[in-house]
């Protein structure tokens, strides 16, 4: 299974906000255990999708700078509605604030399913700049390429429309 909890980017405003969707389907491996006989998208994976979306927003806004993002804090995640196979969760992530040297960014986020609220959460990401040593350059090149490839796939439908 590809560890990726968003399917496509629907909207993007650099440095400001991103909207993504995730479709939930019966065959997805993590549903087998959550729960056996009653498959539902785990709340933690709704948060995972929001975190991934926020990371993409920062990555693309900074033109794929060689950096990682640490999740430092997560606050007030409320899970209101069950998201089940056949549903599509649309999540909007907005930048709330940044600290003075741009290192820490707070996001607020809301997820909806058929226009009904499924969850909301706030979290903070910290930027971790990567130091590339000559002996690791190949590895970093591969990961950079992977990022660009996945970003192309996530935005393919956005470009086509």
């Amino acid at each position: 299974m590809r560890y990726c909890f968003i399917d496509r980017v629907k909207e993007l405003a650099l440095h400001k906000s991103i909207a993504v969707s995730k479709a939930v389907s019966y065959g997805e491996p993590f549903l087998e255990d959550h729960f056996p006989g009653a498959p539902v998208l785990p709340g933690a994976m709704m948060v995972e999708g929001a975190i991934e979306a926020a990371m993409w927003l920062l990555r693309v806004s900074k033109d794929f700078l060689l950096e990682d993002f640490d999740v430092v804090k997560v606050k007030q995640a409320k899970f209101s509605k069950v998201v089940a196979p056949g549903d599509v969760l649309v999540t909007t992530v907005e930048v709330d604030s940044k600290n003075s040297n741009d290192e820490l960014t707070w996001f607020r986020c809301k997820g909806k399913c058929d226009d009904r609220k499924a969850f909301s959460v706030r979290f903070a990401l910290k930027s971790v700049i990567m130091e590339v040593l000559p002996e690791n350059k190949d590895y970093f090149d591969i990961v950079s390429k992977r990022q660009k490839v996945l970003w192309s796939v996530l935005t393919a439908s956005m470009k086509a429309s």
Binding site: Y3, V47, E48, I51, D68, F69, V128, F140, V143, R146
Partner: peptide, 11 residues
């Protein structure tokens, strides 16, 4: 992974 460091996703 699309992260440079192979860390466990916090979620």
């Amino acid at each position: 992974s699309v992260n440079y460091r192979p860390v466990v996703p916090p979620a």
